[in-house]
Simulated assay, not measured.
Amino acid sequence: MAFHPPVAIIAKAGDSGKYKVGLPAWNMLLRGFLAGAFIAMGGALATVCSTNIAASAAAIKDVPGLAFGVSSAGFAQLILGATFPVGLIIIVLTGAELFTGDAMLAPVAAFVHKVSWMQVINLWVWVYIGNFIGSIVWAYIMANGPFVSFGMDATTGATTATITAFGTRAIAIAVAKTSYVGMMGMWSAFLKAVACNWLVNLAILLGICADDLIGKFFGIWFPIMAFVSSGFEHSVANMYFIPAGILTAGLTNTATTVNWVNMWTSNLIVVTIGNIVGGMFFVGVLYWVAFRKEIAALK
C-alpha cells in the first residue's frame, strides 16, 4: 500500500486547508450538513450496537463454553468504538466538511500558505452550523424511527409512543454527556475534548498518508476507535447524541435531566473549545513546528 512520508502529509494537510477556506459559504454549509449527518450515522450505529451489552454479558457469563470473562463495561465501549468510525470514513472519502478536522487543517493552511485567520474562522463558523443542522436531522430520524415504537391506544384510538431499548440507551448517553458539573467537571470535559480531537486529527493525517482505500480505512478507523472507546468528547458527535436523547425523551414523555440548555452549558461550549485546542495545537501547531523547515524546502 502506497503512503506518504510525514513531511508530505503535513504539506498535503496545508493544501487541503487552503482549498477548504476558499470554498463559498453556501458550500461550507452544505458540506458541513453532510458531515454532521455522517457523524450522526456513526453515532446512531454505535448506540444501537452497544445497547444491552452489559445485560448480554451477564446472561452468558455462566454458560458452559462461553465464560470467557468479558468485562461488560469495557466490552460495551469497544463495540461503541468499533462501530462509530463509519462516519469519519465516509466524510474523508466523500469530501464532506467536519468542524473538528478543520480545527487542524485550516490552521495548518494559515501556517503553510499564509491564508488569513479570518478565513479560518469563517470556515469554522459555517461548517459548525452545517454540522449541527445535519446532526439534528439524523437525530430526528432516529428518535422517530428505531428509538420509539408507535402504536394506537385501543380505547381512545390515540397514537402512543413507547421507548425501545435503543431509545433508552440513547437517553442514557445524552444524560451522561450533560452530567459535567462544577469547575472540575468542566475541566474533565475539556480534557476529554482535547484528547478526542488529538486522536481525530491523527486519523485525518493517517487518511491523508495513504493513497488507497484500504489504507485510508484502517488509518482512520484505529484512532477513532481509540477516542470513542476511551470515552472522550467530540463536539459534532454530541450534536447528535444529546439531541437524540432529548427528542426521544420528549416523544415518550420520559423524565430526564437533559435539555436544550444544558446541552450547551454542560457540554458543547467547553467541548468545542477543547476540540479546537486538541486539533489546532496538539496536531496542527506541533507538527508544523516539527516539519516547517522540510516543508519550506518542498516549495
Score class of each variant (00 low, 15 high):
residue 192 K to L: 05
residue 98 L to M: 09
residue 201 N to Q: 11
residue 202 L to C: 02
residue 179 S to R: 04
residue 192 K to Y: 05
residue 122 N to G: 08
residue 185 G to S: 11
residue 128 Y to D: 06
residue 123 L to G: 08
residue 158 A to I: 04
residue 181 V to I: 13
residue 165 A to G: 07
residue 182 G to M: 03
residue 158 A to Y: 04
residue 178 T to M: 02
residue 168 T to I: 10
residue 149 S to V: 09
residue 103 A to M: 14
residue 195 A to I: 14
residue 132 F to Y: 14
residue 148 V to I: 01
residue 176 A to R: 12
residue 108 V to A: 03
residue 200 V to D: 10
residue 124 W to L: 05
residue 148 V to Q: 04
residue 194 V to S: 03
residue 136 I to C: 07
residue 175 V to D: 12
residue 186 M to T: 01
residue 172 A to I: 00
residue 142 M to Q: 12
residue 203 A to N: 08
residue 167 G to I: 12
residue 210 A to K: 02
residue 132 F to A: 14
residue 190 F to C: 06
residue 146 P to W: 05
residue 126 W to Q: 12
residue 138 W to D: 06
residue 143 A to S: 14
residue 162 T to C: 03
residue 112 V to T: 15
residue 116 S to T: 15
residue 160 T to H: 02
residue 209 C to F: 07
residue 143 A to H: 10
residue 205 L to Y: 13
residue 203 A to P: 07
residue 97 E to F: 10
residue 123 L to M: 13
residue 119 Q to S: 15
residue 137 V to T: 07
residue 106 A to P: 13
residue 149 S to M: 13
residue 102 D to Q: 11
residue 191 L to D: 01
residue 186 M to Y: 12
residue 165 A to N: 11
residue 164 T to S: 12
residue 145 G to Q: 03
residue 163 I to K: 09
residue 104 M to N: 02
residue 130 G to W: 05
residue 159 T to D: 07
residue 135 S to L: 06
residue 113 H to Y: 14
residue 157 G to E: 10
residue 162 T to M: 09
residue 167 G to K: 13
residue 175 V to A: 05
residue 164 T to A: 04
residue 186 M to L: 14
residue 93 L to G: 06
residue 127 V to Q: 03
residue 134 G to F: 00
residue 175 V to C: 09
residue 165 A to F: 00
residue 187 W to H: 06
residue 156 T to S: 15
residue 100 T to A: 13
residue 131 N to W: 04
residue 129 I to W: 00
residue 168 T to Y: 00
residue 102 D to E: 13
residue 136 I to Q: 01
residue 123 L to Q: 15
residue 113 H to Q: 07
residue 141 I to W: 12
residue 100 T to S: 15
residue 194 V to W: 11
residue 202 L to W: 07
residue 124 W to G: 02
residue 95 G to A: 11
residue 174 A to N: 07
residue 180 Y to V: 01
residue 168 T to V: 00
residue 213 L to C: 00
residue 172 A to L: 04
residue 182 G to V: 09
residue 189 A to L: 15
residue 127 V to Y: 12
residue 177 K to I: 08
residue 116 S to L: 00
residue 140 Y to G: 01
residue 173 I to P: 08
residue 121 I to E: 02
residue 122 N to P: 10
residue 194 V to A: 02
residue 99 F to V: 11
residue 96 A to T: 09
residue 146 P to Q: 11
residue 197 N to M: 06
residue 99 F to W: 12
residue 104 M to L: 05
residue 143 A to W: 09
residue 94 T to L: 11
residue 94 T to W: 03
residue 106 A to N: 14
residue 187 W to R: 00
residue 97 E to S: 13
residue 147 F to G: 07
residue 201 N to G: 09
